[in-house]
């Protein structure tokens, strides 16, 4: 844990940019910005930056929008930065959120999710279908 804190702080932590380490050392929750994940120069197969790997398996809090068109009553949804439906899904532009204590309901507002973050390519038929995942009990307003 100490290594993680040192690594994140040495990267110039900021909630709006790099995740920041809160002052409480016990069970810390790191703030993570989708904007930072989106700014990674990612290509399938390419190694992710150390600061992203440093968050793997740790608790993070992240804000964003439920992807437009998310059906109701699902356990999983894509958390994205922009509420607009324009553009396309790019794997480092969303976090796949799994809810453990509720299911999705239509919500056009900005939301938060807090839970354990995992990092790594999941491939199907040779394509990366997921890069960032988060398991959270509920959606926070």
């Amino acid at each position: 844990m100490k290594f993680l804190l040192i690594l994140l702080c040495s990267l110039g932590a900021s909630a709006a940019a790099r995740p920041s380490a809160p002052p409480v050392a016990e069970d810390p929750v790191f703030e993570l910005s989708l904007l930072d994940l989106m700014s990674i120069d990612y290509r399938p197969g390419k190694k992710l930056p150390a600061w992203v790997h440093a968050l793997d398996g740790h608790r993070v809090r992240v804000e964003g929008y439920m992807a437009l068109g998310t059906p109701e009553g699902l356990e999983k949804f894509e958390l994205v930065w922009d509420s607009c439906g324009c553009g396309q899904s790019i794997v480092n532009h969303f976090i796949e959120v799994t809810l453990t204590e509720e299911t999705t309901a239509f919500n056009p507002d900005i939301i938060f999710v807090e839970g354990v973050f995992t990092v790594g390519e999941i491939r199907e038929d040779g394509f990366v279908v997921s890069l960032f995942r988060l398991k959270a009990p509920t959606i926070q307003q």
Binding site: L11, G12, S14, A15, A16, A17, R18, S39
Partner: peptide
Amino acid sequence: AEAAQALGGILGRDAITGYSS
């Protein structure tokens, strides 16, 4: 959040260390 992201890119990450949107 977007302004902090832009400022971090221009001034360097250390300039916005500790700022939370």
